[in-house]
Amino acid sequence: MSEKHPNSEGAPGGEPLNGNGVPAPRDTSPEVIGVRRGMFGAENGGDTSGYGGLVRTITLPGATSRPYGGWFDEVADELEGALEEQGLVPENAIEKTVVDRGELTFHISREYLVRVARTLRDDPALRFELCTGVSGVHFPGDKGRELHAVYHLRSITHNRLIRLEVSAPDADPHVPSLVAVYPTNDWHERETYDFFGLIFDGHPALTRIMMPDDWQGFPQRKDYPLGGIPVEYKGAQIPAPDQRRSYS
């Protein structure tokens, strides 16, 4: 979409910090989340279609440069100003800003998530009072940033909706919890932990919520199969479908 990150002029935005489990630095190019080969989605078996050589990179929309349009600039200005007042460097906290399909997304560096959320909630010009929960997304192809947590914040005062996106590498799946700022995120974070294995640091009781307590694995990750999982409880076993007794 755009070439230059609006916040990265002058001082470099994020220092390359990977190596110690911190997300890899961002650039302004579209975010690559994977590579698709062939035409029809088949991954194994011989190629009879002739399209097998086709290689396409899948990218999500990249950073947008100013002006964002509408009230987006106002929110971005206010947020950056409020962060500066607290003695933070906005470029460090906000990795990039994406405007896509009429929606404003701030990609937040995870160390700053709680402070950014608190600012968004408390600043009179921002006032995002309502958090509509967190949605986990797993991008196995986005190396170093596999797990994303997406928050949608709604301001009833100003009638606005923005999105915060935080990412964590699979090797270090930690994101700070927002329960202290938005208590409503209690169950939402438990759900995201249950399905994606994202550990929300500071959550009062991060346990499984949907799956049984002794369930193994995180079922909504991309590498988890859809079905066919053998289950055992009270000593009774339900084998995977391919191992079940068959009736004629």
């Binding site: 989340i33 899948i58 990218t59 999500l60 929309p61 896509d100 399909r101 929606e103 997304t105 509509t132 997304v137 997406v150 949608h152 909706l161 999105r163």
Partner: peptide, 8 residues
């Protein structure tokens, strides 16, 4: 097309 959206 790739991307994300929120509808309520």
């Amino acid at each position: 097309p790739p991307g994300q959206a929120y509808a309520a």
